[in-house]
């Protein structure tokens, strides 16, 4: 069967969940061949094999961490030349999209970004995207070269399908000067101990109605009672109440959890763009006219300072 390249997203060999989803989707198109760049390939290989990687191509060089984007494009291009895949799947992170775009340009290939599903078609892979703030769903195909597709987190349930996962070194010649953008320093983000926003099954978000950084603890407590991630509207982020890494919406994260709880959020189009595809949506807002109520499966018109803590109590009691 034909090979499908999957670029591995990892932290020092700890494979992130979206990569397992990509391996699962890649199996619909052919045999997944994982490309692992940077340190930790030996630690990652067993996981990649478990989820279907027939081979794991690895390359490690200081340039991958010292320079932005370009060295990884060089490596992925080398992998394409070595394997001649039928498609290249890349995680839809900011970096992933930039890598994918530059790779596609070098290959004279078409590019699809932010796919939420990928399936095999007669004329190559067909990618589903959600556009215009999720008001439309489109299905597209790449008509030139080797299809390069970036796939959003949560697009498939990872399924194990053990394969050989043979580790093979990949020969890479990095562009001179690493492309010129030096990463002078890198400060890792502190972990909150809560689930990753884009991967969480439940997200509890607070907006301007939360009215202060100190009040976000009531959002966090509800989230913790449910094992959920915490999100925020841009109004809450711009006010400095919660970090930008937690922003949900057009210029923040897109989430598609099983359950989305919005507290004190009006439901502006740019916010909806990032949460509209959630399976179940509930909201607490004191304004019954708030547009968020048009989307909800269940809504409470009320003061979040009453309803949210009481809900946390209810959840805790019911869970025992």
């Amino acid at each position: 069967m034909a090979d499908v390249l999957v670029l591995v997203d990892h932290v020092d060999g700890g494979v992130r969940k979206p990569t397992l989803e990509l391996l699962t989707l890649a199996r619909r198109l052919g045999d997944p061949v994982a490309v692992h760049l940077g340190p930790g390939a030996d630690a990652a290989a067993p996981t990649l094999a478990e989820y279907g990687a027939v081979r794991v191509l690895t390359a490690d060089a200081p340039e991958f961490t010292e320079y932005l984007v370009v060295p990884k494009v060089d490596a992925l291009r080398a992998a394409v030349e070595a394997v001649s895949p039928v498609a290249v799947l890349v995680p839809s992170s900011a970096e992933g999209k930039e890598i994918a775009a530059r790779l596609a340009l070098r290959l004279d290939s078409g590019l699809i970004t932010d796919a939420v599903d990928v399936e095999a078609g007669d004329e190559g892979p067909i990618a589903t995207q959600s556009v215009f703030a999720a008001a439309y769903t489109t299905r597209s195909r790449i008509t030139s070269g080797t299809p390069v597709i970036t796939v959003k987190p949560n697009s498939a349930a990872p399924e194990a399908a053990p394969a050989a996962g043979t580790v093979e070194p990949l020969e890479v010649t990095v562009t001179e000067g690493g492309g010129g953008t030096r990463v002078v320093s890198r400060a890792a983000r502190e972990s909150t101990g809560r689930p990753e926003l884009t991967e969480a099954a439940i997200v509890v978000s607070g907006g301007r109605g939360v009215n202060g950084a100190e009040n976000f603890s009531i959002i966090e407590e509800l989230a913790d009672s449910l094992g959920a991630a915490v999100g925020a509207s841009r109004a809450a982020v711009d006010a400095g109440w919660y970090p930008h890494s937690s922003q949900v919406g057009q210029t923040g994260k897109s989430v598609s959890p099983q359950l989305y709880i919005a507290a004190g959020i009006s439901g502006a189009i740019q916010h909806r763009a990032g949460m509209q595809t959630s399976k179940t949506i509930v909201a607490v807002n004191k304004d019954e006219e708030a547009p968020i109520f048009d989307l909800v499966d269940f809504g409470v018109v009320g003061d979040l300072f009453q309803v949210v803590p009481a809900l946390t109590e209810e959840v805790r009691t019911r869970k025992g």
Binding site: A135, T138, R139, G299, A310
Partner: peptide
């Protein structure tokens, strides 16, 4: 263009669910 859109479908509007007004029982 190196991509072709096969089809575009409007996502069915979400159907508005139950809305209750909190009179002490909202959380329950």
């Amino acid at each position: 263009a190196w991509t072709a859109v096969e089809d575009a479908t409007e996502r069915p509007a979400r159907t508005k669910g139950e809305i209750v007004t909190d009179e002490g029982e909202g959380a329950k």
